Computed example of a mutant assay.
Amino acid sequence: MKTHEPQLPDLARELIARAAEAAAHRARRARGQLDGIHLGQGRHTDHANSRVLRRILAEHDWPGHRLVGPDAARAAWSIALHSDDDPPFQRAATTLLGRAVQIGDAPIQHWAHLHDRALITNGRDQEYGTQLLLHADGIDLCPLRAPDTVDTRRATVSLPPIAAALTAVQRRYRTDRFAQDAPTVVLAEVA
Results as ranks from 00 to 15, higher is better:
Lys2Trp: 09
His4Thr: 11
His4Ala: 11
Pro6Phe: 03
Pro6Trp: 05
Gln7Pro: 00
Gln7Ile: 09
Leu8Pro: 03
Pro9Ser: 14
Ala12Gln: 06
Arg13Ala: 11
Glu14Gly: 01
Leu15Arg: 02
Arg18Tyr: 07
Ala19His: 04
Ala20Asp: 12
Ala22Cys: 05
Ala22His: 00
Ala24Asp: 05
His25Phe: 07
His25Thr: 04
Arg26Tyr: 03
Arg28Pro: 04
Arg31Val: 08
Gly32Cys: 09
Gln33Asp: 11
Leu34Ser: 08
Leu34Val: 11
Leu34His: 04
Leu34Met: 13
Gly36Trp: 02
Gly36Pro: 03
His38Ala: 15
His38Leu: 13
Leu39Glu: 07
Gly40Pro: 01
Gly42Lys: 01
Gly42Tyr: 03
Gly42Glu: 03
Gly42Asp: 00
Arg43Glu: 08
His44Phe: 06
His44Gly: 03
Thr45Asp: 04
Thr45Arg: 05
Thr45Gly: 05
Asp46Val: 04
Asp46Met: 04
His47Trp: 10
Asn49Lys: 02
Ser50Ala: 10
Arg51Tyr: 04
Arg51Cys: 08
Val52Ile: 07
Val52Arg: 08
Arg54Tyr: 01
Leu57Thr: 09
Glu59Lys: 13
Glu59Ile: 01
Pro63Trp: 02
Gly64Met: 01
His65Leu: 08
His65Trp: 02
Leu67Cys: 06
Val68Arg: 03
Pro70His: 06
Asp71Ser: 06
Arg74Tyr: 13
Arg74Met: 12
Ala75Glu: 02
Ala76Gly: 07
Ala76Met: 09
Ala76Phe: 02
Ile79Gly: 03
Ala80Glu: 06
Ala80Phe: 06
His82Ala: 02
His82Val: 03
Ser83Gly: 10
Asp84Val: 02
Asp85Glu: 14
Asp85Asn: 12
Asp86Val: 11
Pro88Met: 08
Gln90Asn: 09
Arg91Thr: 09
Ala93Ile: 03
Thr94Lys: 06
Thr94Glu: 07
Thr95Glu: 12
Arg99Thr: 11
Ile103Tyr: 01
Gly104His: 08
Asp105Gln: 10
Asp105Asn: 09
Ala106Asp: 01
Pro107Thr: 06
Pro107Cys: 00
Ile108Tyr: 04
Trp111Lys: 05
Ala112Arg: 00
His113Ser: 06
Leu114Asn: 05
His115Ser: 12
Ala118Trp: 00
Ile120Glu: 04
Thr121Tyr: 03
Asn122Trp: 07
Asn122Ile: 08
Asn122Gln: 14
Asp125Phe: 11
Asp125Leu: 14
Gln126Ile: 08
Thr130Gln: 07
Thr130Arg: 00
Leu132Met: 14
Leu132Ser: 03
Leu134Val: 08
Ala136Phe: 13
Gly138Val: 11
Gly138Leu: 12
Asp140Pro: 00
Asp148Ser: 13
Val150Thr: 10
Asp151Asn: 15
Asp151His: 12
Arg154Tyr: 06
Thr156Ile: 05
Ser158Thr: 13
Leu159Gly: 05
Ile162Val: 14
Ala164Trp: 00
Thr167Met: 14
Gln170Ser: 15
Arg174His: 15
Thr175Leu: 15
Asp176Tyr: 13
Phe178Asn: 07
Ala179Gly: 13
Ala182Met: 15
Val186Gly: 00
Val186Phe: 12
Leu187Ser: 11
Leu187Tyr: 09
Glu189Cys: 12
Glu189Leu: 13
Val190Gln: 06
Ala191Val: 08
Ala191Leu: 07
